[in-house]
């Protein structure tokens, strides 16, 4: 396993979060200080495959595109090994790597722009304007008194809750770390976390409660904590209309 993944904090293995196969390839090229127009296909292919294997081992979702790129790399490698035979056409046969290199460079251009956007976002997030308040406001119950009468808040089924849970899980950031031997948070931790949150607000939309949770595991544990709190009647769950927001309400 490459050294940089063996994180200092004991059991956690951190994987660089590759956005796609091109991202991983650019990473390998930079790491190996390779000339992008003269990629040593054989060694890059084997390194690439190692990474994909590791991602699988760590149970990270390996998107289909990663597998497709693996196939492309192997195909290029084979074509590089074949003797250069002039096809019957009069065109010179192109370097088998040409298309991949073009793709990598094109991607790199926009990746650089993304870095600029990242810096600008960082700066801009330190200014607050009235539209930021307006955005935040939609997560505060509109009329504290009216909206929470039982009239249009429905009690919800476990299925509704599971649907909301699945949405959160589907939208969760791609896992960048993986706990190997220990789970970082316990159900009790998350019960305390939820009760702490409800201390301040009394009621919080389900998806807001779940934001800022770092990984799937924490989301799952937090969901288990919610179920436990409902079971022990310390928490009540209501939904604003059919398929509306689900609110967690302190009992």
């Amino acid at each position: 396993m490459p050294e940089q993944w063996q994180k200092k904090e004991g059991y956690t293995v951190s994987l660089p979060n590759f956005e796609g196969p091109l991202d991983l390839l650019l990473y390998l090229i930079r790491k190996e200080e390779i000339d992008i127009v003269d990629i040593p296909i054989a060694s890059i292919t084997s390194q690439y495959l190692e990474y994909v294997e590791l991602m699988k081992e760590l149970d990270l979702e390996v998107a289909g595109e990663f597998i497709l790129m693996a196939a492309t790399l192997i195909q290029i490698k084979v074509r590089m090994l074949l003797p250069k035979t002039e096809p019957d056409g009069d065109e010179e046969s192109e370097d088998p790597r040409a298309e991949l290199i073009r793709q990598l460079l094109e991607y790199k251009r926009f990746k650089e722009v993304a870095e600029t956007l990242n810096e600008k976002e960082d700066r801009q997030r330190r200014y607050f304007a009235r539209c930021d308040f307006a955005w935040a406001k939609q997560y505060i119950p509109k009329e504290e008194t009216a909206s929470f009468d039982r009239g249009f808040m429905n009690d919800i089924s476990l299925f509704d809750l599971l649907t909301a849970f699945k949405t959160v899980l589907d939208n969760a950031p791609r896992v960048t770390s993986h706990q190997l031997s220990a789970i970082g948070v316990t159900v009790q931790d998350q019960i305390n976390y939820i009760l702490g949150m409800l201390e301040k607000e009394n009621r919080i939309p389900f998806h807001i409660m779940m934001t800022d949770l770092q990984d799937r595991l924490t989301i799952i544990v937090t969901f288990m904590a919610i179920l436990e709190l409902i079971r022990t009647k310390r928490l009540h769950v209501q939904q604003a209309g059919t398929f509306g927001d689900i609110w967690l309400i302190k009992q």
């Binding site: 926009f110 976002e121 949150m197 934001t211």
Partner: peptide, 19 residues
Amino acid sequence: FHKRLRSRLTQAALETLSV
């Protein structure tokens, strides 16, 4: 704003916006 702040954009979102 506590929990109500919009989260930062992901790397994927920033790249897509660049394009």
